[in-house]
Structures are given as structure tokens and as C-alpha cells.
Design a protein around this nucleic acid. Sequence first.
DNA 1: GATGAATGAGCCTTCATTCAT
DNA 2: CATGAATGAAGGCTCATTCAT
Lengths: 191, 191, 191, 191
Amino acid sequence: MSPRTEKQIEKLKQDKELLILESALLLFSEKGFGNTSMQSIAIRSKVSKGNLYNYFKSKEDLLEGVLHYGLNQIKELFYEQSSIHTEEEFSYTIRANFEMIKSNETFWKLYYNLVAQPKVYALFNKVFLPFFEQYIKLFEGYFKSKGDEKPEATALLLGSSIDGISLGYIMMGGDNYPLEEVVNRLIEKFK
Amino acid sequence: MSPRTEKQIEKLKQDKELLILESALLLFSEKGFGNTSMQSIAIRSKVSKGNLYNYFKSKEDLLEGVLHYGLNQIKELFYEQSSIHTEEEFSYTIRANFEMIKSNETFWKLYYNLVAQPKVYALFNKVFLPFFEQYIKLFEGYFKSKGDEKPEATALLLGSSIDGISLGYIMMGGDNYPLEEVVNRLIEKFK
Amino acid sequence: MSPRTEKQIEKLKQDKELLILESALLLFSEKGFGNTSMQSIAIRSKVSKGNLYNYFKSKEDLLEGVLHYGLNQIKELFYEQSSIHTEEEFSYTIRANFEMIKSNETFWKLYYNLVAQPKVYALFNKVFLPFFEQYIKLFEGYFKSKGDEKPEATALLLGSSIDGISLGYIMMGGDNYPLEEVVNRLIEKFK
Amino acid sequence: MSPRTEKQIEKLKQDKELLILESALLLFSEKGFGNTSMQSIAIRSKVSKGNLYNYFKSKEDLLEGVLHYGLNQIKELFYEQSSIHTEEEFSYTIRANFEMIKSNETFWKLYYNLVAQPKVYALFNKVFLPFFEQYIKLFEGYFKSKGDEKPEATALLLGSSIDGISLGYIMMGGDNYPLEEVVNRLIEKFK
DNA sequence: GATGAATGAGCCTTCATTCAT
DNA sequence: CATGAATGAAGGCTCATTCAT
């Protein structure tokens, strides 16, 4: 019954918040946002239904939290490159991108689950768009340096292709989609 | 007071079914399947809630109807080509594909809304997969004829790229996504 | 297209009415009154839903029709005896009663289905009670002639016992209830 | 503002569950299972519709609860006899049985309401059959000890007679059925 | 912070009955 | 008489959210 230090309490709080986020991410991506009840999230995170609302003020708020949480994980894993100069760097960046997707399938499943849901569209843009635009810029710079006449369009094409490949991989499951080969092909075409 | 011919009645029935399908397609794609109530579909199609069930025996059945309805529209618009031999034919096929997407944005919005929804995944595969696989085969043949060493992977890459471009276009809206230029780039890369 | 005589038409009408009654009896007794839809009755009798209401003005009206129909069948089969004088007659009457039940199991299943449903209680009394009371009187007379001090109570006991045996037989199914032996016992006790 | 003990809370919960059970028992027996809405049960128990489902997970589950509740009440009232040896004991057991029925008319009305309902037949058997079979065995032992040649059939006859008498008494209402006299007659015949 | 009973709106679906043809 | 599309009320059930403890 000894009093905990504030830091310890803060830590515990974060732990519980994290637990909720992980549970929500998993359940949202497995069953979809609409088919996941707050109840089931509460149970999985071993938090009472009421207490959930002390951490997130609504289901949508929790979703936003999950998206930020996922994005942060991705950022960490991401190969932080300010610019791409050589084919090797380009190739490396692309491969790193798919490695990241492979190690965050759950999150990306949720991503594609939500991407076309108008209800979360605004939220979505707020959280993801800036991140993506910066990513496209990175490639744009590379293509420009290679003398591409329309580096912007090429970069967008690349980005869209990556998106499409990821979607296919996530949807069909790792065993059914020959990710390796397709990515090789992608690199050859764009490098 | 003259009695309608059976054909006329049949026509009326089809009209109403069509009305329901159109309403459902629009609402599903605008608000998502889970967030669209049968009530709202009934109101929009000017049909009583109960009567809806004379046309479709459940909400899922209606969704299946909508998917088939959309797929049929697409098939009609589709450039029916049994094989692709020249760059011109290839280019034409790709462009025709995006023209089709542009004239069925509503449907494609629904498509991307559903593609990652676990609950409708099975239904989804049943309706779309066969169609898509055939499409990929078409390109595979073209790449093989061009001497591509891994035509299968290339075709899948192309398919995924098309998917990604469509997703981007549908999500960002026609004004924000430079579809024309991206498609030009795509053709140049793969032709 | 030759005109039918009125009698023929009347005949057809009766046939269709009969068909409806038979279907309703079967379905009501199999699935219960509340769980049988007018639709299913219409289908089984090959009559349109709308036309059903030309023969019976409501579902309850149809039920009443079914009860009368069943009761008439029973009356026909019943051993019409104005009085019982000997043990043989008594024994015969009892056995005839159970023979009748065995050949109308469907109807009796419906009977016990409804007997405690307050909603149809009034209807019930109207149709059945007079019939039963007369039946009890028959036995009362026999017991009185035998010198029973309380023939009324004995007759009611016998009636109730018959009721209970029938209920058991109908509910447990012919194979699980040793009707023969129980009836033998009943006759021995009361004759 | 003093916190309630867990036991108090548990008590309150039981009270509410009891309230629901009593309401359901009454309504089911008055209007039948199928004609009683969860709404009406909620109103009568002064519980919100939604909360009902915190106590019973479905309407059928509630019915099962009601049946067990009723059966337990009966068991308590029941004269617990492991065996019957004398006429006095026999007579006492029979009378006790009908006393029990008289003090639980509501429950027995429900019983006869359900006994022939195909939809709840399985549930029914699960809850009641074991109880009844044991009861019949009790009488079988008595008849055997008296030298009855077919004690099994006699016991079943007695059981069916009791069933029939109860049905008559419950259906016709206490004032219209001369229970006392009929039971006296029953005892005389079987003792 | 923590609990979970309680609320009430909303959802999908069924069905007796009506009515235009 | 015959048809079956149409209606609208009602039913069972779920669930995000609140609140007393």
C-alpha cells in the first residue's frame, strides 16, 4: 500500500493505454471497425468498459489513437532517408518499405479496411496524408536527379504501385501473393 | 383500366429492383455497408422497408446483388479483348480500363470500401476474383509474347499498379489525382 | 372455356377450402400456430396469399376453421353411443376413443398445442367444451348405473385420465408411450 | 455515500433477476411465450430492454431461466419421499402433489402452455423429463410392493391421470373444476 | 481511476393484411 | 375468384455511452 511515485503511476497508465491500443488495433483489423464492440476491446485489454472511456473519450477517438499508434510504429521502422541518389539506395528504400509492411500486417490490414470509409476519411487524411506526401517527394527527387521529364507523375505512379502491391499482398495473404518477385519487377522498372 | 401485359409488369418489377440496386450502390459506397441501414435504402428507393425483402432476402443478399449489378455494368463497358498483341492494343486496353473506372466511380468506391472488410471477404472473392484473374491472364499473354522472362510477375505487378492508381484516384477524387499523366507513365513503363 | 355449372364451382371452392384446412392443420400442429405464416399455408395449399383471405378472413378465423374441421372428423370416427350399459360397451368405448386419437394424431397435437393458450381459449371453449361435456355425461350415466356413489366425480376423473394419457401419448410419440398397456390398466380400474 | 458491500450488490442483482423471472413467468403463462415481447417483460420488471440482456442472453435463455426457477420452487414444496410404503403415504403424496399445483398455478399454466410447443420441446425435455421420470419411479415402487402385476404401466397410468387432472384444473380454473372430489376418487382407485 | 449495471436508440427481419390489377 | 407486390407495425437483439458506487 506504499504510495507510488507519480512516474510509476504515469507508467502504469501508459501501459494500460498501450494495452488498449494493441487490443483495438488487433480487433479492428481482424473484424473491422464497425464489427468490433467496445466491450470486446475492454475484455481483451482487461479494462472495464467504463474505464475505457477514461483513456479514450469515444470509439472514434480510440480509432484515431490506434492510427497514430500504428503510424508511429511505422515511422520508427522506416528507413529514414532524406534523399535517394543511387540505384542501390532506391532499391534499398523500396525493399525496406515492404519489409516494414510485412512486419506490420495487422496495421496495414486496418489501413486498407478504412481507406475508403468516408466516415473516417477526414481523420484519415489528417493522420496519413502528410506522411505520404513526404514519401512521394523523396522519390520525386530521385527521379528528377535521373533526368525524368515528369518526376512528379512518375513518383505518384510509383507510390500508387506500392499501394496496389501492398493491398494485394495484405488481402491475398502472404502465401498467395509472390511479393518478392513483384517487388523485384517493380524495382527493375523504376530504378 | 386496361390490364397490363405480363411483360409490362415484369418491366415494372425490374425497374423497382433497379431502383433499389442503384440506391443501395450509392448509399453503400457513400457511407459504407455497415453504416447504411435498410431503412435508408428503402426511403431512397421509395419502397417500404418490408417490400425490400420481396426483392432481396437479406442485407447481404442485397449487397451481392449490388456487386453483380456493378460487375455487369463494368463488363459491358469493358473492352472485350481476347488477347493483346501490339503496343497500341496494350495502350488502348489500359486506357479503356481507366475510362471504365472513371464512369463507375461510385461502384469502385464501394469496391475499395469492401475489399478489406473481413465480413464480406468470401462473398467478395466469389464475385470478383474470377473476373480479375482472367484480366491478369490477358496481360500475362502480352508480356510473354514480348519475351518477358517473368510474364506472370510482370502481369501481377501491372495489375497491382492499376489497382493502386484506381484506389488513389477514387480516394483523392478526380480533381486531386492527375490520372491522365500517371496512366501515361504507366503505359510507357509497361508497353 | 365452357362455363362450369354452379355446383361444379361450389365443388371446386370446397376442394380448395379443404386443401387450405388440411395444410393449416398440418402446419399449425407441426410448428405451432404462432410459428406458422400465412405465406407457408398459401404455398402448401397452392393458393395465393391474397386468395387465402377470400376463404378465411383472418389467421384466427382460419384457426377456428381448422378446429371445426378437426372436430368434425373426430365426430365421424367416433363411436356414436347414446349410453353405455355393460363392461364390454364401456371397454369398447374407451378403446374406440384411443383408436380415434391414434388416427388423428396431427389434430390432437394441435389440440394440446392450443389448450393452454389464453388467446385461443375462448374460441376453444366454444368449439370443444360442449362436445366434451356430452362425452363426460355418457360415462356418468354408466357409473351411476353401476351404483357409483359419486358418478359425476368418477366420470370427470375418467375424462381427465383419458386426457392425460392422450397428452402423454401425443407428446412422447407413439413409440415411446406404451399406450396399449396403459389403456388396459385404465379399463380395468374403471370398468 | 458509503460503499455497498459486495454482498449487498450481489443481493440487489439477485433481486432484479428475480423480478425479471417473476414478470416473465407471469406474462409467459398469461399470454404464452410467443405472444410475450421482451419489451413487455422489461416494462413489467422496471428494467430497460437492453439491460434485460445483461441477465439473460436471449428470450429462450430467459424461458429456460423461468422453467428452472419454477422447477426449483416446486422441488422445495414437494414432499420429498424416497419411497412409499403404506396407503397413508400414498394418499399423502398424491394430495401433496395437488397442493403444490394449487400453490403454483401460474407456473403450471406455463407448463401446459409449453408442453406441446414444438419449438421449445427440446428445452422442455431437458428441464422436466428427468424430474418426472423419478416421480413415476416412486409410484412404480409402491405398486410393485403391493403385488401389482404391471407396476410400470400402472405408475404411468397414474402419472398420466395426475397430468390430466392438473390440466383440467388449470384450464378450467379452480372454481369450475371439483379438484377435491376428483383427487379423492383418484386415491381410492389407485391406493 | 475503476467497475459494470443501466439506458435507449437503432438495426435487421418477419408477417398478417390490403389492394390494384 | 386470383395474384403477389406493398405496407407498416412489431419483434428480438446489439451496442456506444453514461453514471452511481
